[in-house]
Computed example of a mutant assay.
Amino acid sequence: MISAPDLSAQELSALLHFYADAGVEWLLEDEPVDRIAAFAAAQAERRIAQPQRQAEQSPQAAGSTRQSTSRTAPAPRPAASTGTAVVPDAEAAAAARQAAEGAATLEELKGVLQAFTGCNLKNGARSTVFASGNATSGVMVIGSLPSAEDDRDGTPFSGRQGQLLDKMLAAIGLSRDNTLLTNAVPWRPPGNRTPSPAEIDICRPFIERQIVLAQPKLLLLLGNFAARFFMGEDGTIFSLRGEWREVVIGGNSLPALASFHPQDLLTAPANKPLAWRDLLLFRQRLPI
């Protein structure tokens, strides 16, 4: 068995990052538990209870047990409260729409989003990852979901994928200073799982209000999830990329282009030529 003192600082850091990506929140319980003793006690209880169960299953005992149960059956116990109010999905989505529409500026929307408690994704995330960059640039880059680095730093496109995005933007004359960067969903799902349809419905009003308030002229959608989220199609990024589409947000039609997410390119560098074609196509319509 490997313990922490056996690991180098780099190995321990990698292990902790792995645990965080897997959704592990606590490495130790509040009190030590002797699992071997607990297992032995459970076995002893089963050995003691087995003759009693066999006696109860005999025909004579079964009849008397049914009569006794019918006379003395206790009332069902109420379920224990978990201390967390469960909001139905439809009500949470309606509350999200109302909260988002009440924000008159991006700063107000950020505060509303941080205070919102109607989405399960927020309960497992470290940070509410809001937009960063220039809200008046006319160019909005929207990723899919916050990564582990985004969740840790509270900023979209952090870590290695952010470094690659910086290079992609620089190649067409853009940077974080003249674009607005954000994600379709503001909270990282546990283990990077895909959000459920109900969670998507709850998050949608916030990103749509963000677009309405920023008033971009162009949208660059990065990754499968972001492309499907806005285009309403079930294809892969290979079928959705490389072609301008019109998406309707807040009653307005906006030109949008889908391409590979930087994480996709880190995983499969062979797709970089396709991403470069998309970037060149996007550059052709950049506001001068």
Rank of each mutant, 00 (worst) to 15 (best):
L254T: 03
T267D: 07
G133Q: 02
R209K: 03
S253H: 06
C119A: 14
G250F: 13
A20E: 10
A96I: 07
A214R: 00
S175L: 07
W244R: 04
E208M: 07
P216S: 05
G154I: 11
M231L: 11
S253D: 09
G124K: 10
M140K: 00
V248T: 13
A41P: 06
F39A: 15
G133E: 00
V141M: 02
P255L: 05
Q43K: 14
G143K: 03
V24R: 03
A73H: 01
T105S: 05
S175Y: 06
I207G: 11
R193H: 13
L121D: 07
T82W: 06
R285C: 11
L165P: 12
E208P: 03
L174G: 08
G223W: 04
K167A: 11
V112Y: 11
S137D: 09
E29Y: 01
Q60C: 00
W244D: 06
L221G: 01
V248E: 12
A90H: 10
F130H: 11
L257M: 08
A131E: 07
R241G: 07
S68K: 14
A115W: 00
S147A: 01
F116P: 07
S70N: 13
R204T: 06
L15Y: 09
D177Y: 11
G159A: 09
S58G: 08
I200D: 00
A131N: 09
L113T: 15
E101H: 12
E243A: 08
D21L: 04
G63Y: 14
P190D: 00
L169Q: 05
P88A: 12
N120E: 15
S144C: 13
L280V: 08
D264P: 10
M231W: 03
R193S: 14
R285S: 15
W26V: 01
F116Q: 03
L221P: 07
D177P: 01
G235R: 06
A184T: 03
K122R: 13
Q43L: 15
P186Q: 12
K272R: 12
A94V: 05
R160Y: 11
W187H: 04
N192I: 06
R285W: 14
F260Q: 12
A198T: 13
A93L: 00
K217H: 01
L12T: 02
D234I: 13
I2T: 12
D234W: 13
P269V: 08
L254F: 00
M1V: 15
A226R: 06
F238R: 13
I2W: 02
E29G: 15
G23M: 01
A198W: 09
A275E: 13
T65A: 08
L7D: 12
